[in-house]
């Protein structure tokens, strides 16, 4: 049985088929060869996306920080704060409004990406601003179980990312990503060696983080509850809970009011302003 299609035309058809076929094979080859890289980038991207969703350029906030000890005794602090980014530096201003004995106590932090933070404090009793020079970033935030590192966005290049799989939390599918500090110095600065981040697949927001110590034992567990959208399209968690799994002390940061402001005046974040707040 002979074909009715001329030989030249058949060759042309084959040529036409070869190009897409080659393209498919090439794509397959590329995807198979480079799939680990793609995979490796995925958890990092997930983490970065989740961080970006809550990374505000600037905000003003009224919050309540509750410190709860292992015997369930509570200590409350009402804080007004403002934060904004100016180049490579994040500037944060915090002031206690309650309880009365610490009302007016204020703190200004310049969170530099590549150098030690600058901190100023104002104590009403002293009536003057003092600069605090401290190299430790992993220390407690206002005596709570949060640390100063928790309050700022870390540099994503300081970590390696590993996708551990998927888990359900409260019926929702979560991506579980292990984030490892690249060096002991980075671990020291951040106050953990490894953390496990749980990202809601639907909202792409972080709902839970477990921090591990040097011995790979869970040390702190942070839970983000009640995410709410802001005008800018970003989100904030209304309640952030953290529990120290060693001493069972807990802290809660309840955000009563928040306003994302893109362009806060840098002059607002100067030490002399602490007295006038």
């Amino acid at each position: 049985m002979k074909s009715n299609v001329p030989k030249a035309s058949r060759m042309q058809n084959i040529r036409k088929m070869i190009i897409p076929l080659f393209s498919i094979v090439l794509m397959l080859f590329i995807s198979l060869t480079f799939s680990p890289i793609i995979k490796a980038q995925t958890p990092r991207l997930s983490c970065e996306n989740a961080a970006n969703k809550v990374d505000l350029d600037g905000y003003e906030m009224i919050s309540t920080l509750t410190i709860i000890d292992s015997k369930n005794r509570k200590r409350e602090r009402k804080i007004i704060s403002a934060s904004a980014k100016f180049g490579e530096t994040s500037k944060r201003l915090m002031k206690f409004t309650d309880p009365p004995e610490v009302r007016g106590t204020a703190m200004l932090v310049y969170d530099h990406k590549n150098k030690t933070d600058d901190i100023w404090i104002f104590l009403p009793a002293l009536r003057k601003v003092r600069r605090i020079v401290s190299k430790e970033k992993n220390k407690s935030f206002m005596g709570s179980e949060f640390n100063h590192a928790d309050m700022s966005q870390p540099n994503p290049d300081d970590f390696t990312y590993l996708l551990l799989g998927q888990e359900q939390i409260k019926g929702k599918d979560h991506q579980v990503i292990q984030v490892n500090c690249k060096s002991p110095d980075i671990a020291l600065e951040n106050g953990y060696t490894v953390k496990k981040v749980y990202i809601d697949l639907q909202s792409s927001l972080t709902t839970q983080v477990i921090y591990f110590d040097k011995q790979n034992k869970p040390e702190r567990k942070q839970i983000f509850l009640g995410y709410k959208p802001l005008k800018s399209g970003k989100f904030y968690a209304e309640l952030i809970q953290i529990e120290n799994l060693r001493n069972h002390r807990k802290s809660e940061l309840f955000i009563g009011k928040i306003q994302d402001i893109k362009e806060l005046n840098e002059a607002y974040f100067i030490p002399s302003n602490l007295e006038e707040l």
């Binding site: 610490v102 901190i119 009403p124």
Partner: peptide, 26 residues
């Protein structure tokens, strides 16, 4: 109040655990 603010300052800049060796939570 000054004492309270000193203690608050220690919490901000030092290690709150240090305080807990000398005074209780309340």
């Amino acid at each position: 109040n000054t004492v309270s603010q000193f203690l608050e300052l220690y919490n901000m800049s030092g290690d709150p655990a240090d305080l807990e060796y000398f005074t209780d939570f309340d």
